[in-house]
Design a protein around this nucleic acid. Sequence first.
DNA 1: ATGGGGCTTCCCATCATGGCAAGGTAAAGC
DNA 2: GCTTTACCTTGCCATGATGGGAAGCCCCAT
Lengths: 137, 137
Amino acid sequence: MVIGEAAKASGISAKMLRYYESIGLIPRPPRTGSGYRIYGAHEVETLRFIRRARDLGLSMDRIRLLVDLWHNRARASRDVKRIASAHVAELQHRIAEMTAMCATLGELIAACHGDEAPECPILRDLAAGGGREAVLF
Amino acid sequence: MVIGEAAKASGISAKMLRYYESIGLIPRPPRTGSGYRIYGAHEVETLRFIRRARDLGLSMDRIRLLVDLWHNRARASRDVKRIASAHVAELQHRIAEMTAMCATLGELIAACHGDEAPECPILRDLAAGGGREAVLF
DNA sequence: ATGGGGCTTCCCATCATGGCAAGGTAAAGC
DNA sequence: GCTTTACCTTGCCATGATGGGAAGCCCCAT
């Protein structure tokens, strides 16, 4: 399999395959005489693993650790669980931040007439400092 | 006020003040004879506005629009509301994505013993393709 | 006058991804 | 065999918002 085929089979673009190779996430594949990268079924399997980890929002650093554990028959599932849990904790943190933003903005949007007039609670709040009083009055 | 003081007063680093100036988000301030940027109370007020918009997760592009509307007495609150609503919609989209990731990972984490053994539903799922069957068996 | 801290500009790095350009190659059609 | 076409190679640039650092100038206090 040449890089375009591996890309199609794995769902990762050829560009990213070269990038992953350059950062050492995947090993350098053998080349044909003319320099084309050659991937086998095993490599594509690893790539699909990476793809799915990426789809779950994992960082490259954590994916690297997971791939290493996956390829390591002496692994402890505890290590895998710890990495996944840390990721979930980060996701929840970000979700909480964004939910708070949505809540604040939602109140302001609800208070805004959204008409031709210039008066706007959203701008007023941004200008005044986001304190509760700016929302209530 | 020189840049460091404006930074402290606004909560935006001096580095970012120069950056915001370079991308045209804020106008170029006057300079002293020796080239120091000089900021007044009005500029700091704008910077605090930007800071709070940033804290609500707005993109620079949207902040630019909001600042323009804020400074424009002939604005319509409808335009402000539309921008804020678009941002909330994006936030909700991202929240939904991350929540789905959390749900999937949560199931896998719950199914993982997290002990010394190599057997791990998390890795199994990543390897198998994320289908339901991989979770259930 | 000298030292320290703050200011200036410019360059580099992040992270994962895409785009573009120039040049080589493989395979298919004529 | 030659042409076309599609694909491969490397390398550079860009993103967005931010931090870091270096080299050099400036202001103030001692």
